[in-house]
């Protein structure tokens, strides 16, 4: 018993101060929101050819990147000869509307995530039921990590719960496999209304690396209406937390 107390004292208080204090520092090699520049674009298409999932296209004389589908592998950035694609360290990637995830050439902006309705209904208490439908356990792990004392999701009134019947929202990961489709639908039906849906990661938003596979459904949108998209492969825990806090209106957009 005493050993446990001593250990507790030595390990110290580890919960981050964010959002009241600074966000945890991300490493210099972190790959976040891209910024696109079409000034030198010759429409050679090499960036689009380099993309493994067709997230990058050349439209109206410049690149356009769907961060919802993007795996953040930086192949387009490496392929472009005139610096038309640049990934920044910006971790705020979440957005409420699918089309807002598409980044176009021009100054950096952040997609809007806030929902008046969700804020009113769940702003003080939000219970999440996580469903993995073909996820590789990276998005799952970095969602689950929000429960650790470092992130302490509970302090925002947000909690992962065991039963869909206790939940207000589904947090979906994975490309939605055919084998898990029924399980996902039934879990959604078991959540009492009012409810909403969060898609976490490239797979749940657009299929990820499995885009176009006959065994998968290219994400959750084909099955359920998604209210919040959190891009990444996998998204950093800070990106996931930011998305949840912004949709609830707990941090400024």
């Amino acid at each position: 018993m005493f050993e446990a107390f001593i250990a507790r004292l030595q390990q110290g208080h580890r919960t981050m101060r964010y959002p009241d204090g600074p966000a945890p520092e991300l490493p210099d090699r972190f790959v976040g929101r891209p910024v696109l520049d079409k000034s030198g674009c010759r429409e050679c298409g090499e960036c689009a050819d380099a993309c493994p999932v067709g997230a990058l296209t050349v439209v109206d004389g410049g690149p356009q990147l769907d961060t919802g589908a993007c795996l953040f592998c930086r192949q387009c950035e490496l392929a472009c000869t005139h610096g038309g694609v640049h990934f920044t360290k910006e971790h705020r990637l979440a957005g409420a509307r699918r089309e807002d995830l598409i980044v176009k050439p021009g100054p950096a902006t952040i997609a809007k995530a806030y929902s008046e309705e969700i804020h009113k209904r769940f702003g003080r208490s939000l219970k999440l039921r996580q469903v993995s439908a073909g996820g590789c356990n990276a998005c799952e792990a970095d969602s689950n990590v929000l429960n650790t004392l470092a992130w302490d999701l509970g302090r925002f009134g947000v909690q992962f719960v065991a039963s869909p019947r206790h939940a207000d929202a589904l947090l979906i990961t994975g490309p939605v496999t055919e084998n898990m489709l029924l399980g996902l639908k039934k879990t959604y039906e078991a959540v009492p209304a009012p409810k909403f849906v969060i898609a976490v990661g490239a797979c749940a938003i657009a299929g990820g690396p499995y885009r176009g596979h006959a065994e998968c459904h290219d994400g959750a949108s084909g099955t359920l209406k998604v209210d919040l998209f959190i891009p990444g492969c996998p998204p950093h825990p800070l990106t996931i937390l930011d998305g949840i806090l912004r949709v609830l209106g707990k941090v400024e957009e």
Binding site: A50, P52, L71, G134, T177, P209, Y210, H213, E215
Partner: peptide, 25 residues
């Protein structure tokens, strides 16, 4: 089997630009 994504089948014909992503997931 609920997580079956058809990866083994998709790896045939590679290596290609998706191969590394299949492997890492």
């Amino acid at each position: 089997g609920y997580q079956h994504r058809g990866v083994t089948k998709a790896l045939v014909g590679g290596p290609n630009k998706r191969t590394q992503h299949y492997i890492e997931t």
